[in-house]
Each structure stands twice: as C-alpha cells, then as structure tokens.
C-alpha cells in the first residue's frame, strides 16, 4: 500500500506538469484581453503600456517558465518565510494577479474561509442528509418515501442553483425578510448573537448547495444499497438470525459505503472549486466568484493558479479515494 501510494504520487508529477502546460496554452490561446473591461475612453497606446507592464510582451514559453518558477519555487519559499519568520524568499517575485496587482495566493487564502464555511458546510450537510435518505429509499424501494426521495433528487439534480437560489431569496429575503440576501464576508463570529447572524446568512446558500449535493449522493447511496441488499451474504446474515438493523447497518451499509465513500472523497475538490453560481447569487465571494471574476477580467495568473490548484486537489483526492477503497474493501490490495 505504501509503495503504491508513493508510486501514484510520483506518477502525479508529470500528470500535473502536463495539466499546467495545457492550462497555460488554453488560457494563452483563448481570445480576450486584460484591458477589455476598461472604459473605451482609455486610448490604445495606454492599453498597450498596461499590457506590457503585465508582462504580456514576453513570448509564451518565457511566461510559462516564469509562472512555473513563481508557483513552484517562489510561493513555497514565501510560505516558509511566513511560517518560520526566517527570510527564505528574499525579493523573489510571487504570482501576481493582474487585477489587483497583489499576490494570488494571498487572495486565495483570504477567500478560503467563506468557501469552506458555505460550500464545505453544504457538502457536509448534503452528505448527512443524503446517507439516511439513500439507505431508507433502498430498503423500502418503491415505497412512498422512496418515491418522494426520487422526486426531490430529480429536483435537486435538474433545477439549476441560480433558480433555487433566487427563489429562496425572493421568498425568504424579499417577502419574509428572515435571511439576508447578501453574504457579509467581513462578519466575525465572537459570541452567541454573532453566531446566529452567521448561521442566518449561511442558511440559504448552504441549503441550495446541500440540496444539489444530497441529490447526487443519495442516489449513489441508494443504488449501492440496492446492489448489496440482493446479495447472498445479506440472506446469510438474516439466516444467522441477526436483527434487521444489524443486517442493514452492519452488513449491507458497510459494504455499500465502499463506493459511496470514494464518490464523496472524489467530490471534495469541488468544494474548494467553490460554487461559482451560488456564490454569485448570494455574493459569498469565495473561490468560485474569484475564479469567475478572474476569467471575466482575463486575469491569467489568477485563473492559471486557481485552476491548477483545483487540478492538484482533484489528483490528490482521486489518489485518496483509491487508497480509501483499498482500506475499506479487504478484497482490494494495491501492490
């Protein structure tokens, strides 16, 4: 297992390098211009100067190598400096956003809390809701509970979050006035009442996303349970005279969880990717909103860095899912 992990990790390096190259090429070839959003009153000569100041004058390979150096050498050194207080990074150039002219990683770190709070929480809540729904739906297949579960999942799957989000805002913010429609990222939880405020502003975006996550995971859970419920070993368990909840929760659930756990693990990077649409709708301004504004402004260093971080997370969590699979399923052994 250990060797397997090491080997997979090493294999990820060329994969990630290739991904970064492709990302860079794609971004470079894509039409668009960082000065596009500036008013037309700014004359072309000035625009050209801005572009040159951003480093766009350099040829492609130079910019790519520069980014590699900034991302893989300068940023980690800077992190080390931050952590230890000893100056490792010197005046090495970090990855700088074209929009804000500030280090990309600083902004990413700034955005992480709200993304983790809202999107991460919705993933956790979605999972917590989904598992029992999936279990009961499968155990009582075709019952009214299962039918309702199927319907709600369909709704969660097929209705886009920009619709459910706006619907919730219209109902709970405009008409009832219970929750704010705009997320306050500066809010700090210090005591009980500020915690209530935080919960209130999190409820709507979290629920919108949780519905979507729950829809997916509950379907998976249900299918996996159904697969296992008809297995012979379940009959064996019943023949042993075990109580039904032991049969269900110990025998069936444990085996059904194997694929579900890996699906959940593979889904974690999407949390870090943020939820572009939901973040926009509720003005959560997390990583998703950061990415979309960067794309709109053609802020290539920001887009490149963010997408690359997502790629790393995806590779990482896929690896993690594989390892989890091996741990959970004794039949699988990685050499």
């Amino acid at each position: 297992m250990f060797n397997y992990t090491i080997r997979r990790t090493l294999l990820a390096i060329p994969t990630l390098f290739f991904i970064s190259l492709v990302l860079f090429l794609l971004l470079d070839l894509a039409p668009g211009d960082p000065t596009a959003q500036l008013p037309l009153t700014i004359p072309p000569e000035v625009r050209e100067k801005i572009r040159l100041a951003l480093g766009l004058g350099e040829p492609f390979h130079i910019r790519f190598l520069l980014w590699l150096e900034q991302f893989f050498i300068n940023e980690p050194l800077h992190l080390l400096t931050e952590l230890t207080g000893v100056d490792f990074s010197g005046d090495r150039q970090r990855v700088i956003s074209w929009q804000s002219r500030s280090p990309v990683m600083d902004i990413v770190v700034q955005r992480l809390p709200q993304t983790l709070w809202v999107v991460g929480m919705s993933y956790v809540i979605g999972t917590i809701i989904a598992l029992p729904i999936g279990i009961i739906s499968a155990y009582r297949q075709y019952s009214w509970f299962d039918q309702i579960g199927t319907f709600v999942s369909m709704v969660g799957f097929s209705i886009p979050t920009f619709f459910t989000g706006v619907l919730l805002i219209v109902i709970f913010s405009v008409h009832l006035g219970w929750f704010p429609s705009i997320y306050d990222t500066t809010h700090v939880v210090t005591d009980w009442s500020s915690l209530i405020v935080q919960i209130k502003q999190m409820i709507m975006p979290t629920m919108v996303l949780a519905l979507y996550n729950a829809a997916q995971i509950s379907r998976f859970m249900r299918a996996s349970m159904l697969d296992n419920l008809n297995q012979d070993y379940v009959r064996t368990a019943r023949a042993k005279g075990l109580r039904e909840n032991v049969v269900l929760l110990v025998h069936v659930l444990r085996n059904s969880m194997i694929p579900v756990v890996t699906v959940i693990a593979i889904g974690v990077p999407t949390v870090f990717g943020g939820a572009i649409i939901t973040e926009q709708v509720f003005k959560v301004n997390g990583l998703g909103q950061l990415l979309i504004t960067a794309i709109q402004a053609n802020d290539i260093p920001m887009v490149q860095t963010l997408t690359f971080i997502f790629a790393v997370l995806i590779v990482l969590f896929n690896l993690l899912a594989d390892i989890l699979y091996g741990i959970l399923d004794p039949r699988i052994r990685y050499e």
Binding site: Q231, D232, Y233, R235, T236, H251, R254, N255, D329, P330
Partner: peptide, 9 residues
C-alpha cells in the same frame, strides 16, 4: 455460492 454468501468485509 460460498463466495457471494459470505460478507466480503
């Protein structure tokens, strides 16, 4: 089926 009837875990 002795394979299927034993809980693999």
């Amino acid at each position: 089926d002795p394979q299927e009837s034993l809980n693999p875990r």
